[in-house]
């Protein structure tokens, strides 16, 4: 199979919920090996976009290819090529870290002989080796996130989707997630699409940013490019306010906030 020119390519990708257009004719392309950041206020359509690209949600119209496969006609192939960490909590608190990873290994058809070493590697990579046999319920927020990343990357996906991977984490835990993502990208030439509200994260981690607002992309470019568009001393916060301005007060239903909080409090 020849390497696809774009790791992710969408063409007029649209999703409606009743009258509400959550994602509106989205057309974008992500180069292989890039870390692509999707920014935007609550309710902008970031999670909906990711859900369509990960085959969880069928688009209302438009199309997309992930790792060269069509999300609507070849969902099984897409699923084999991707890893995904949802905005919600996806590790099972009543299993241990190692058991969570074993479940992933089996669902992703990692051959039996490779499972144990692969899991040990993933645990070591994420700095979780000594906690492998503890119930995930007892993990800190940062440890849970790293475990979820380990689960999502266990099968060495070509494209990784991360929906607000550092929300609710303290600065040190956040940094440790960033470092691991950068290292994983270098080692596995993985393409990463990440959504975030965190401007520092966007600046440090992402090669390209798309600022999404009300289902459409309001701005697209490298962090430095976007800043220079606004002014010589502009920060990404200024960029965000400029392109998604006003939205912060009006956007985001109660439901969105509830879901975000849900993630932030983790196991409570």
């Amino acid at each position: 199979m020849p390497a696809p020119e774009s790791a992710i390519a969408t063409d007029g990708l649209t999703r409606r919920f009743g009258d509400r257009v959550a994602v509106d004719r989205l057309t974008l392309s992500v180069t292989p090996g890039a870390i692509f950041g999707l920014l935007g206020p609550n309710g902008a359509g970031k999670s909906t976009t990711i859900k369509m690209l990960t085959t969880l949600l069928p688009p209302t119209s438009g199309s997309a290819r992930v790792s060269g496969f069509d999300i609507t006609t070849e969902p099984a192939r897409v699923r084999r090529a991707i890893g995904y960490v949802p905005q919600l909590l996806s590790a099972d608190g009543s299993l241990t870290g190692a058991e969570n990873l074993m479940l992933s290994a089996r669902l992703y058809d990692i051959p039996r002989a490779e499972r144990k070493p692969r899991i040990a590697e993933a645990l070591a990579f994420m700095g979780l080796t000594e906690f492998a046999r503890l119930l995930v319920r007892t993990y800190s927020g940062g440890m849970v996130r790293r475990l979820e990343l380990a689960q999502a990357m266990l099968h060495h996906p070509a494209v990784l989707f991360l929906d607000e991977p550092t929300i609710g984490l303290d600065p040190i835990a956040r940094r440790s997630v960033w470092e691991r993502l950068q290292q994983a990208r270098r080692q596995f030439a993985m393409t990463i699409l990440i959504t975030t509200h965190d401007m520092e994260e966007a600046e440090v981690l992402c090669d390209t940013l798309a600022i999404m607002h009300a289902g459409v992309i309001a701005a697209l470019g490298a962090p430095a490019e976007l800043r220079s568009q606004i002014g010589p001393d502009a920060t990404l916060d200024d960029v965000f306010a400029h392109f998604a301005g006003g939205a912060i007060t009006e956007g985001g239903s109660f439901r969105d906030i509830g879901r975000t909080r849900n993630t932030a409090t983790r196991f409570g």
């Binding site: 990960t54 085959t55 969880l56 099984a76 699923r79 084999r80 991707i82 890893g83 995904y84 949802p86 905005q87 919600l88 909590l89 996806s90 590790a91 099972d92 608190g93 992933s104 669902l107 992703y108 058809d109 979820e148 689960q151 849900n262």
Partner: peptide, 12 residues
């Protein structure tokens, strides 16, 4: 309500 179903559903 957590995201476990989502994780299972993106597996092959």
């Amino acid at each position: 309500d957590l995201g476990i179903v989502h994780k299972l559903l993106v597996a092959p």
